[in-house]
Design a protein around this nucleic acid. Structure first.
Length: 217
DNA sequence: TGCCAGGCCCTCTTTAGGGCCTT
């Protein structure tokens, strides 16, 4: 896959029956948006039937009920369709290790493959928004001052708001560190560094850009 | 019916423990 701009990715979110696909939990909703140069140009949202009744806790947590899922298509059918939506793109998710486990498990059941990379907006936010009271999505939406697009804990609204938080973090890299073009791989690298080295890394990106500009001049 | 995980990150750390995040 060629070098990707940080603001041209898929941002996705799953609602699920629990925390662990290894213990039988399944996806019940997928929501995703496609960013192109910082603008949402496409959306994907589907409920899916996991094949068993979901707990009352999940009904209350997400607002998705057993009645709503009763006539929805099975996970395999929805995820086969989603494989086409995400194909050829990297993706971002809030606490991506959680969504990655469900994406891999559900795509495997649907007999589909995906070869892109993921980046965690939660880990990036711990470097970019070190002054936030915490790094839950709901808190970051308020902290970054981005639009609330719907109910929290519904997949498409969470994906949209994650996309806006992601975009605001890219803007901060641009404005605070003077890095005009930010790549997906650079955000991934940033997410893996300690807070101290994250600051140094961002400063080095700006210096690299300035050296590039000098060579052009 | 009720239960389960896992990776990151900080510190009173590294021969560890516990909070944060996601559903």
């Amino acid at each position: 896959m060629q070098k990707t701009l940080a603001d041209s990715v898929i941002v996705l979110d799953f609602e699920t029956t629990g925390l662990s696909p290894q213990y039988g939990d399944r996806a019940i909703e997928i929501g995703a948006v496609r960013l192109e140069q910082g603008r949402i140009v496409d959306r994907f949202q589907k409920l899916m039937n996991p094949g068993f009744r979901i707990s009352r806790f999940i009904e209350e947590y997400t607002g998705i009920t057993n009645e709503m899922l009763r006539r929805e298509p099975p996970c395999e059918e929805v995820m086969a369709e989603f494989a086409g939506f995400i194909e050829g793109h990297h993706y971002v998710a809030h606490n991506a290790s959680f969504d990655r486990r469900f994406l891999e498990a559900e795509l495997k059941r649907a007999k589909r493959t995906y070869t892109g990379e993921c980046c965690c907006s939660l880990l990036v936010s711990r470097r970019i928004y070190q002054d936030a009271p915490n790094h839950r999505l709901q808190t970051l939406v308020a902290h970054a001052g981005v639009a609330r697009t719907g109910s929290f804990h519904r997949a498409l609204a969470d994906a949209e708001m994650t996309a806006y938080v992601w975009q605001s973090m890219i803007e901060r890299v641009r404005s605070q560190y003077g890095v005009p073009v930010v790549f997906f791989d650079q955000m991934r690298e940033l997410s893996k560094l300690s807070k101290l080295y994250a600051h140094r890394y961002l400063s080095s990106l700006a210096e690299s850009h300035e050296r590039g500009q000098e060579r052009q001049d």
